[in-house]
Each structure stands twice: as C-alpha cells, then as structure tokens.
Design a protein around this nucleic acid. Structure first.
Lengths: 337, 337
DNA sequence: CTGAAAGCGCTAACAT
DNA sequence: ATGTTAGCGCTTTCAG
C-alpha cells in the first residue's frame, strides 16, 4: 500500500508538495503538479484518512442515527440524506440505535473522538441535557424526532400536533365519533420515565380535536405499537371489546396495514365497520386495499434539508438558524376512512 | 479533549502503562491500573480511534455495501447484520452505492486504508478481478449477489436458478403457459457490458423450466425494472400487447405490487386474467390483495450468517470456508397465482 | 514556489 | 512490571 512518501519519491518532490497537490493549494509549479498527479495515478494512491484525521482535518463523514432502518420512513429519509451527502463528497455512516439510549450515546462518541464531522439524529431517546454537551465537538442536526428542551441545535420535522388535529377533525366531520388511538413507539419501549415528545404532541393534537368537538377519549381505546403484527393484535383486541370504536388513528402506516390485513381475515369491513388512519404515507399506503388514508411525511425533503443544514453548519455558512423547521405534512384522504 | 498523555500525567505513570490498561494487558500493577482507570474516568477520556487506526490496530468496524437501502430486502438484511455486529461489539457503517461502480470502489478503499476491518458486499457491480486485490487488506464476504469468477471470498445466497425453475414449474403445472418475465435491476442500469450474474441465473432457471415443458419464451414478454412504478408501467405495456401473457414472473415484490395495483385500476383480475409472481417475500407480500405468490428470501439468516462468517474470518477461526452457501428459499404460494 | 522538520495520539518493541 | 523510544501517514509552519 503506497503512502505519500512513495508518491513523493516517484514524482521526485517532497512530501509537502504532494500534500499541496492533494489539497489543491495554489502556488505549485504546473510541471510538478502534473508529475505528482501521474505518480498518484500510477501507484493507485489514496491518502490514508486515519492519518488525515489524526492531523486534525475534517473526516468528510457524517453519522446518521436512526432507531430502526427497516422502517420505510427511516430508509427513505436516510436515502435522501445519502444523496445530498454524496453530492458534496461526504460519506455517511449509518447507526442503527434500536431505540437504545446507550447505543445512541455510543454513536455520539464518534463526534467526540473526531471520527465524524457532524451527527444527524433522526430519532432520539436520551434527554437533551445528556446530548447537549456533545455539541462542543461538532454540529448536530435533528430530524423528525426531538427531545424536550431542545436548544442549540436545529430540528427539521413536521408539526405533529397539527397533523393529528387535522386528521382527527377529518374523521369527526365524516361522521365517525368513537375514535380509538394507537400511539407509536419504536422497537423498544422507551426507558422508564422517558417519553417521546413527538408521540406526546401527536396525542395532544388528537385529544384537543376530540375535546373541541365534545367527544370523549376512551382510555380502553388507547393502544401502542409499531409493527404490522402490532396492528393485527390491535384489531383482535378491538374485536374483543364490548364497546367498539368506529375508527382508529395510528402512528404509522405499518400498524394501519396490520389492522387492515387482519380485518380482512375477520370479515371486518374497512371503512364501514372501522375506519383506519395511518401515518407517514409509506409506499405501501396505495398498495393496500382499501388504499390508506394517512398523513404524508415529506421524507425526501426532510432528509435533504437536514443534511443540507448540517453541511452548511460545517461550512460555517450559518449565522443563525431557525430552531425549528416545520415541513408541510398534508393529509392524504383515500379509501380507508 | 484529553489524550493518553493527560491520563498518564494525572495517574502518575507513563503512556505505555495507560495503553496497557486500555488494552487489557497482563502484568500491570493493580494499584496503577486503578489509578489509570480513575484518571480515565475523571477526564472523560476516550482513545482517539484515528490514532489507533493509524497505528494499525483493529477498528471494530465493518463496512456493508448495498445498492439501495430503501429496498426492504436490503434493509432487512442490514438489520440482521447489525444485530450480530452489535452483539460482538462491532460497529457497522452502511454504504449506499446506488449501483455505481465507482462508489463501490470508493467504499472498498475503507478497507485498504484500514478504516474498517472487513467488508460485506450485499450487492456487486464491479468485476471480481477489480475487487479481488482488496482481499489483501482484509476479509470480504458476499451476500445475496455475486460476480462471475468469484474466488477467495465466501458468498451467502440462495440458489437463484433453482428458485426460478421451481416457481416457473408451479405456474406451468397450474395451467398458465404464456409466461412473461421481468428481470430485476437495481437503481441504475448496469454499466455497459456488465451483467448481473444473479439476474442471469434467475432468467436461466426460468428459460430452462419453460423449455423443459416445451414452452416458448417470447422476447416481447421480457421486461425489466425494480420499483413499484416500473411494475405499473409493465402492466400498461402488457395491456397494449395484442398477444398477452397469462402470467408474469418478476424479480421483486415491489415490481409485482406495482403490477397488482395497476391491474386494479385497469380492471384486470389477478390471477384470473394475469397471474403475478414476486420475489423476496417482503413484508408487503401478505398485505396485498390478492396476497402475493413469491419466493421467500431468508433475509434474517442471510444477514446473520454473512456477518458471522465475516467475524469468524476476522477472528481467524476459519481454516477453510465453503465458497458458496445456499440458504433455503421456499416458494410461497398465495393468491396471486 | 518548495523542502525540512515537527508533531497529531497511539502502540509495541526494547530496555530496564 | 514499567518507562523510553520510534514511528504509523499526514499536514503545516517556518525557512529559504
């Protein structure tokens, strides 16, 4: 494996000159520059980035933390981020936290130890006061999820509460009035005492819309989950209830898909017997039968803007940023409501 | 940010002793060890891994290359790999190549520059002779896809040809005889002259089964694609044909889902007017209506065994490996055929 | 415009 | 059992 020394020898110059060519410094004789470039090509030389890092330059690497890459929402967001990062010749390392606080911290260490230039948190489980200190080592941008008390770092997300209020009202105005609610949690139950502000905000939007219309929120109609199987189970539970809801709002299209799939087996008609609302507008939403009414999350924009914000921060191009950016999240009314 | 020197000073020992404690060497006085550990804790010290790498020790990091993380097949495989890696306290960096040969090579450089200990290729676009030289820098394990002429590195996959033969025969025996075929390609068309052995093997299995039963393979019934939209387009194309097939075998559930969704719009009955076969058995397969007949890919096992193989190679626990491991890929007959 | 030299933080002989 | 020393490959003053 060739080093900068080999290139220097081959090109008949010093290591410094090679370094200058590498880093596009001005004031390098054209002939020497050419000689160096030829040597680099011939040797198939690539700078050892561990050495570059050690020397204190940037790593051109971003860490992206998600709780669960198999969630189509996350893979879509990550895909958009990757596109932007690649375009700016940044590399992206994907960290699957599985919703574990220790894993999250573990990956944040990458920033402290200068293995990455910046971090994107697409899901958060630790308290902000735990994460905040890492800001001194480099920029952090949040995407989608956010902790309470967030400050010092921007977040790109949607207005969760508003989205839920809108969809709840839609249901109410369509004549449904016994509405069940399924909260979303990811992978693991959150650690004792820690709650997801995102989920809380959504629920608050739901409750507010219900109360505004004088409707009661039944505690026995409150569920939680994140997977298709969770959805299936929820439908079965509902069927066991003496007092059944006529609609259910869920925290993800996956849960909704499970409910719909199980409903077919149990001969429950959607939306006549039970209206179903999803969240995310995943690719699956239009493939289901009936097609799913859901809230569209602008995954591409979300990933793109988040990565762009981080890169801008890295380039010191940001004087002052909006603490919160809300992207539009229109409701998609289809045939499940 | 504190360094090993700070720790040494604080603990009143030399840097070597700190290093020894860090790396669990024997022969360290218990008192000093304790002093060092205390100093580490007080200073909140973490070794700078760029320095460690430069020095040539392991990185505890694996690079995983996939062409398209939004493909549920890949995210499932990656998820399984991540689980195994985490369990062995390895970190995983995800490289989304988008089917680009230069990106693939770029990420392979991580191995050469000692930024990762090993590489997993879940998709391959470069020729094996291009990739082969990287083996000298560390182990490479292939998963799912494979280049022609592969040697020196193990691959965990399924018997593509056999899977296609089996499913084609199923269709034939069920009475379908005008079978269209949709090849799978990922993200980009492959570079000129480069073909996907995986896709070729699948097609070969299809053709062989057809010919064995004396059926003709129509060239106008050959399509290719990878997305839901590709599937939609294919259905439209088929409807424009004067001589229509009565069944279609596709290279992924996503394509199949697109065909089914579009069929509904066009009032084409599945499977009466057109039988549809997918590939992968993605979570969506059972959510579609009709539920999709497909080939089950053991994503979890595939990811798990691939990562385990790589870790075993890294631990020098492997004398000699099976060049090819075929995992079972049973056909899932549901209602679309 | 270019080279010599110092040093980033760490580990592994080599001495003791 | 522990310290001293020599680099790993690179960038960046500092002189020329």
């Amino acid at each position: 494996m060739s080093t900068i020394k080999d290139v220097a020898t081959k090109a008949g110059v010093s290591r410094s000159t090679v370094s200058r060519v590498l880093n596009n410094h001005p004031y390098v004789d054209e002939k020497k520059r050419k000689a160096v470039q030829d040597a680099i090509k011939e040797l198939g030389y690539t700078p050892n980035s561990s050495a570059q890092r050690l020397r204190g330059t940037e790593t051109k690497t971003i860490a992206v933390l998600v709780s669960r890459i198999v969630n189509p929402f996350f893979s879509a967001v990550v895909d958009a981020m990757d596109e932007v990062a690649t375009m700016h010749s940044y590399r992206m390392i994907l960290c699957n936290t599985r919703g574990r606080a220790d894993q999250e911290l573990h990956f944040l260490e990458l920033l402290r130890t200068k293995q990455v230039d910046g971090v994107i948190l697409a899901s958060v489980v630790n308290e902000w006061e735990t994460i905040y200190p890492y800001l001194q080592y480099g920029p952090i941008v949040l995407c989608n999820e956010y902790p309470r008390g967030l400050h010092g770092a921007p977040v790109i997300t949607i207005d969760q509460k508003k989205a839920m209020t809108t969809i709840t009202k839609h249901l109410l105005h369509k004549g449904y009035h016994s509405i069940a609610y399924c909260n979303v949690y990811d992978v693991n139950h959150l650690p004792e005492g820690v709650r997801s502000p995102l989920a809380e905000d959504r629920y608050e939007g739901f409750v507010q819309a219900m109360e505004m219309e004088g409707k009661v929120v039944h505690s026995s109609w409150r569920f939680s989950g994140h997977s298709v199987d969770d959805g299936r189970n929820i439908l079965r539970t509902i069927l066991g209830l003496t007092n059944r809801p006529d609609a259910i709002i869920t925290g993800s299209d996956e849960i909704a898909a499970g409910i719909i799939a199980e409903a077919k087996i149990k001969n429950v008609r959607i939306p006549e017997d039970l209206a179903v609302v999803g969240f995310d507008n995943q690719p699956t939403a239009t493939l289901l039968e009936p097609q799913l009414t859901t809230i569209h999350q602008p995954t591409f924009e979300m990933g793109k803007q988040t990565m762009e914000m981080l890169l801008a921060l890295l380039a010191n191009q940001v004087e002052q940023f909006e603490p919160v950016t809300f992207l539009e999240a229109p409701i998609q009314i289809r045939h499940s409501t």
